[in-house]
Design a protein around this nucleic acid. Structure first.
Lengths: 110, 110
DNA sequence: CCAGCGTATGTCACATCTGACATGAAGGCA
DNA sequence: TGCCTTCATGTCAGATGTGACATACGCTGG
């Protein structure tokens, strides 16, 4: 998890320690946070890859710039559903989404 | 997609054709349905593997028998979040969940 | 210095999801 | 046949997620 990501998460209210659990964060909660971070990074990366602004992506998703920002920040108020729908709308396949979910944190090939 | 699954989906209000799209179902919607069916099957399979009743699983999830039934039926009223949380609560890893999402429909090894 | 662009954050009315309950249907068994 | 277990489906009040808006922050070019 890079510094920037961690900062975003913490300020969003998540309690993050190491890459996994810490005080008051069960294994399951930790797994969900990690999973969401993976998807959040995926969205940011895919958008970036298309040279789109958050505003443009928001439009593509039928949503707003602010919500895209929250998605990419893995904000508490964002569901996995929304993240997945975003990726699919950007043309990714179910398998692509799965690979992002399985991914540890950063880095990715295709 | 087996017959039983298709029946459950259709009665749940989804419009399903082939394994993918049909009338009035965009590619994205189709992908979401398939993804949810994969997770629904995963929950049913994992529960079955543990010889638990829906009632017992409901308790483990802090929920009810009826909601478990809806989860396994990939009901409209069930979010991907809930399905994922269920699988994690049953002890699966992020990677396990990912593999179920990537899976076409039925069959699985481990 | 200060516009302007892209992004981040807080808030809120409205939409969707969720647990719980009631009830029904299918199968097993005495 | 009646009873019991397990799963399916409808409903609803309360919880959570969502789009939109306002506003703030950092950066870059003028």
């Amino acid at each position: 998890m890079d510094k920037r990501t961690r900062k975003r998460l913490e300020s969003a209210g998540w309690k993050v320690g190491g890459t996994s659990e810490f005080l008051g964060l069960t294994d399951e909660e930790a797994a969900i946070v990690e999973l969401k971070v993976g998807l959040a990074n995926a969205v940011r990366e895919q958008r970036s890859r298309r040279s789109m602004t958050q505003e443009q992506l928001g439009q593509l998703l039928g949503s707003s710039q602010s919500r895209v920002a929250k998605i990419e920040a893995a904000d508490r108020s964002v569901s996995i559903d929304l993240m997945v729908r975003s990726l699919l709308r950007m043309g990714l396949s179910r398998k692509d989404v799965a690979s992002y979910i399985a991914a540890p944190g950063r880095k990715r090939a295709a």
